[in-house]
Write a protein that binds this DNA or RNA. Structure first.
Lengths: 170, 170
DNA sequence: CGTTTTATGTCAGCCTTGTTGACATTGCCA
DNA sequence: TGGCAATGTCAACAAGGCTGACATAAAACG
């Protein structure tokens, strides 16, 4: 199953970065980094009785103001039952507003309230702070490489979604 | 809370990679990439009735043959009750062997059985395949940057653990 | 107009995986 | 011997995934 120049011998050249050892390091780096990546927001969320799922919803509602439930489902890749549970508490708590669509009245468009925007800011502040420190220490070239590798690691569908998010505001 | 050259204006120079927009992209890249990163093993695990927690245990037991429960707890960052539940099923299913320590008989040293090693191989094959493709597409310079940024993103404690793993086999 | 499809919400139940607290056992060590 | 450390286990709980089933409203279609 593992073909290529790894699994035993390398092809000499500059392919040393594709050895099993290097790949394993990459895997472990993802694991430990993701832990750090989520730890700061997790602390804030916990103090409010929310979880990571709430953070994700808040993030993408902020990101795409007025997005529909269906769109959010596609981005997050969870079931509507799962998302709805989270969304319901956020709406009840007054952090998210759900407006009936004007063109299509079946759709609900989601917005952060002022209070929701406040929490969003708090969460993204700590997460951005960590990322900024990491970026600053690593330098622009490393950051470019970081983003390139992450993009390559995404499923094609998710990658398209990610890139679409970057371009327009949707 | 967000100080530095972001949040509004940049300092001109080469600091454009530290804008809020770039940081947000980095955050979303982590989210989508981690999804891809775990998706292939998840499929295999599901078919066996295991979860990601089992994968993590298997990975680090493979990585550090004969490691103790306490060491594993520290690496994984979960409670012993949580780890124990996973470990118990793996031992019952004959994928992991737990041997009483020779020097210190309170400690249990954990090993993959032949069957456990087989599953480990299967899991790491698919995960490495994705990582290898991503690395190959991105190239060695990008890979170096990827690893640098991830290391910077880790909590100091986890970073030390990560680096210790890389050096010796423990 | 009637039918079908779409978007959403909701109820019920299940699973994994995290948590806390309590307690028992074993064995190292002073 | 007494204290502490490493481990295991029981019970209970919560978050957040999942499936299946069903309800409603509105759009779309023929």
């Amino acid at each position: 199953m593992a073909d290529g120049p790894t699994s035993g011998g390398q092809r000499g050249e500059t392919l040393l970065y594709l050895t099993d050892e290097q790949l394993r390091k990459g895997i472990e780096a993802m694991f430990f980094a993701y832990k750090g990546f989520t730890s700061d927001p997790d602390r804030i969320l916990e103090s409010r009785g929310y979880g990571r799922a709430h953070h994700r919803a808040i993030h993408f509602i902020h990101r795409s103001h007025g997005t529909t439930v269906n769109n959010l489902l596609a981005i997050l890749g969870v079931t509507k039952q799962s998302l709805n549970r989270v969304l319901r508490t956020l709406i009840e708590d007054g952090l998210v507003e759900s407006r009936v669509g004007t063109r299509d009245k079946r759709e609900r468009h989601l917005y952060l309230t002022a209070e929701g925007a406040l929490l969003e800011r708090e969460l993204s502040d700590v997460q951005q702070a960590r990322m900024r420190d990491a970026f600053r220490s690593a330098g622009p070239a490393a950051v470019a490489g970081f983003r390139t590798v992450l993009e390559e690691m995404m499923d094609p569908e998710m990658r398209r979604r990610y890139q679409r998010l970057s371009e327009n505001g949707l």
